[in-house]
């Protein structure tokens, strides 16, 4: 089985935010929630770079470790998903996440937190694949259709890569060797406890 990962080649990202928009559209993401976002570092300075960031589907995910109701699970593709039926919206996963992935729709008065929402790596939730129930809660299940996440698939500069970690790391290394520089695989050390040799 593949070990799915995202890799954002910051030297290619042009901050067009198409990945953000595509994600929102594909999954009908609730209001106020950004499953993916683009962060611009050193904005306006020499060496400015933009990084597209979403849930990194960590190895030994900290969100899963702190969840009081144990609603997280890791799929065979190493994608970290959660069960919204079990989720109580306590917010602990958002405390523990290094990437700011878990977010909560405002469902009632006084800013009550609803069920947590985050990137599903376009692979839905615990409901039957591609069912209506799954779509309503988690959005499209592209992995079940044999497709990769839409954000990466439609990235115009091919900055955002999705797929098996080893393969996308090889692609990235090749790019770095070819052009002679690279800013690294953002978040990988934090998410997977390993370093991409660039």
């Amino acid at each position: 089985m593949a070990r799915m990962k995202f890799l954002c080649d910051a030297d290619r990202c042009i901050e067009c935010n198409a990945c953000v928009t595509a994600c929102k559209n594909e999954h009908e993401v609730p209001w106020g929630i950004n499953r993916r976002r683009v962060v611009t570092l050193n904005d306006g300075l020499p060496g400015e770079r933009s990084v597209s960031m979403a849930c990194m589907h960590c190895t030994d995910a900290p969100c899963a470790a702190v969840c009081p109701v144990d609603c997280f699970y890791t799929t065979d593709d190493a994608v970290v998903l959660h069960n919204k039926d079990t989720c109580i919206g306590c917010g602990y996963c958002s405390y523990a996440c290094p990437f700011g992935a878990p977010q909560y729709p405002q469902t009632a008065n006084f800013g009550t937190r609803g069920k947590m929402d985050k990137c599903t790596y376009c692979s839905g939730g615990p409901e039957p694949d591609m069912s209506q129930a799954e779509y309503v809660k988690y959005g499209a299940n592209r992995l079940a259709e044999g497709k990769l996440p839409l954000c990466a698939e439609m990235c115009s500069t091919k900055a955002l890569l999705a797929g098996d970690g080893d393969i996308i790391a090889d692609i990235y290394r090749e790019r770095v060797v070819t052009r002679g520089y690279g800013s690294g695989a953002w978040g990988w050390r934090t998410a997977y406890g390993e370093t991409v040799t660039v």
């Binding site: 901050e15 935010n17 953000v20 106020g32 950004n34 976002r37 683009v38 962060v39 611009t40 570092l41 050193n42 904005d43 933009s50 990084v51 960031m53 900290p62 969100c63 470790a65 702190v66 602990y92 405390y95 523990a96 996440c97 290094p98 990437f99 700011g100 953002w186 978040g187 050390r189 934090t190």
Partner: peptide
Amino acid sequence: SGRVSIPDRGAGNLIKPDNKSWAALQ
């Protein structure tokens, strides 16, 4: 941290590795 173009300024925090340490504690 950097700049984001969405209203949630907090989303500008790209990576906070220390958040993980609480997971072990909790």
